[in-house]
Design a protein around this nucleic acid. Structure first.
Lengths: 341, 341
DNA sequence: CCCCTTCTTTGGAACGTTCCAACAAGTATG
DNA sequence: CATACTTGTTGGAACGTTCCAAAGAAGGGG
């Protein structure tokens, strides 16, 4: 009864032609007569024929599919980058296979393996936690583009990032221009992105001759890490906080408010990333916004280029971020709260 | 030079056995001698052999892969459901292919087509915008489970949902037990989920003999829709708002605060969904929490069961939600703000 | 009427796997 | 000591495509 999926052969016999001609017709070859093409298309339609991607991939030795690994599907940053990847890739007739390793290097590696079994032609890593060795091994086997991380340069592996150092400096510029001096940086722990942003902060403070106020509190990338770091930072009586990312900044704001201070009247807070969420009315966070979708689009472009010419040297793109001023930053309070000089 | 990927044949010749034995050994058959198994594993290791999923899928006529469509990767609800799906599915040796249609029915349909080309064995829809006709056509072709929506019953298609009606009643119970009477429902517009929650609200109001206070304001599922709906609702001088989902609740809070009122002292707000975000310190939203990961896990289980016995009747699971009390609900103000009786 | 070109169409091989029937080599059974 | 059974192993077919060389058909020129 339920003769499983119709194949190209079923279409062929229904249209009264050979399987080869069906293949030709369905892939849009110009050598097929109008008459046959029509008959074949009709037959395919009637039978509900659908290409078998596995068979095709086996035959042409390509899968027309890219693998995408995102660090963590819960962090909106990655969804927004992914958007850019998807739209670009789709336009070029590629499919994507999406996996997430949930910040676990071992799982990430396993997931990449699975992707490879599906014969993906390229791999886009939207942030990752792989060790340099593993990453090198992966990149040797398959064209790879990393987004958001550029600390492990590998030959013929492209990297697409925002410039974290300049971005962090912009944050300091913004706060300094409002009149802030005691600006504390809540860093995100031991990872390359946090390091770069902390460094940009330090440079920015120097530029504004505020180096002697420069203070970095080590925290993390999560809400609660931002909360704790802010509590610590408040001891130092700052007027502004530059927080390593938007999520942590939201935690920091909670700490400030719990301490009986208000944002931005007593303390200004600026985040980093520019997730859509930060724009929600009840959050309304000033932040250094990365062009997230653009980051994704660019990564996809680089990948497609590399598939064309696999041997070209590695490209390293850095896109500019900009400050989006919302409701969590303002001028410092006219009268200092404490007796600090 | 670069002899492409090693195949099972390369492994066979290196281990000095036949390709069949390699296939047997690598799939863990017990009929392979210890000696051969070891030699084969070594050879595979040395060559960096990796299974070709396309070839395998072609040979066994199965892909060991499930397709997953999520409504929108930006809404954290779906990422959290997805977690549950992934962990369960992975344990059973299946891979998943994840796509998102961005709330666009046409794109969703296209994406499902792509999934089908990859010979997925089953399809899990984590919310969708498909029309009944399209959904029916899809479900006829391939085992399908819908999560979050149960308004289109189709034979042999399983559905996994939370009970929106009971959940909404719980929200009313919570507010009523705090002493609230003028409770307004901010609904989410014209979709099945919003309708069910509004209905639960009405029933709950009746249970507490508050039916005469029952007011439903039509809004939407987004932050700004919640904001606008709250503005409208405030005209009626309520003491509490039940908002259709967490994201819209966040918008509603912003509207309340902008009106010079505070949450929860003047007005209590309760959301629905229980996204992780709602627990962030700076948000701290009281909400009706669905067991999101559990929803996903259950959907995966139903799918795996159905693959075992394709003909069994459709299952309809409803899991219970519960109120998570946080900082946005409290007793109503002792003295009414306005001159309303 | 035959040959040459051009336009369509075709069968067969290939892709990398799994499965099956069959076979070789031991090992226990009568 | 032949028979049967067990344990390992094998080659060939199959899966649904694409690609290639080659065959047919149709048309034009001599």
């Amino acid at each position: 009864m339920s003769a499983s999926r119709p194949t190209i052969l079923d279409v062929a016999s229904r249209a009264g032609v050979s399987k080869s001609l069906v293949s030709l017709a369905l892939s849009g070859s110009p050598k097929v007569s109008e008459k046959s093409r029509l008959r074949i298309e009709r037959a395919a339609q009637d039978l509900g024929y659908r290409l078998n991607a596995a068979a095709r991939s086996l035959a042409i030795q390509k899968s027309r599919t890219l693998g995408v690994l995102v660090l963590d599907l819960h962090n909106p940053v990655f969804a927004e980058i992914l958007d850019g990847v998807q739209t670009e890739v789709r336009q070029h007739g590629f499919s994507t296979m999406l996996v997430s390793g949930g910040e676990d290097p071992t799982l990430e590696h396993r997931q990449i393996n699975t992707l490879q079994e599906f014969q993906i032609e390229g791999l886009i890593l939207i942030s990752h936690r792989l060790s340099a060795d593993v990453l090198k091994a992966v990149a040797r086997e398959i064209p790879t583009v990393t987004v958001t991380r550029d600390d492990i340069p590998i030959s013929r592996m492209d990297m697409v990032c925002n410039d974290d150092i300049s971005g962090a400096r912009l944050a300091v510029d913004h706060l300094a221009s409002l009149g802030h001096e005691r600006i504390v940086c809540l860093s995100g722990g031991d990872n390359p992105v946090s390091h770069a942003r902390a460094r940009g902060y330090s440079e920015g403070m120097e530029d504004h001759a505020l180096a002697h106020y420069s203070t970095i509190v080590s925290g993390g990338l999560t809400d609660s890490a931002g909360y704790r770091a802010a509590q610590e930072a408040l001891q130092g009586d700052p007027t502004a906080l530059f927080v390593v990312n938007d999520i942590a900044a939201m935690g920091a704001i909670a700490a400030v408010e719990e301490a009986g201070l208000s944002v931005p009247e007593d303390i200004s807070v600026i985040g980093y990333d520019g997730i859509r969420l930060a724009g929600l009315r009840s959050i309304n966070l000033t932040t250094v916004a990365q062009p997230l979708a653009e980051l994704g689009r660019l990564a996809a472009t680089r990948m497609l280029e590399r598939l064309d010419q696999p041997q070209r040297p590695a490209q390293h793109d850095q896109v500019a971020s900009r400050v989006v001023v919302r409701g969590t930053t303002g001028p410092p309070p006219a009268h200092p709260r404490s007796s600090a000089s």
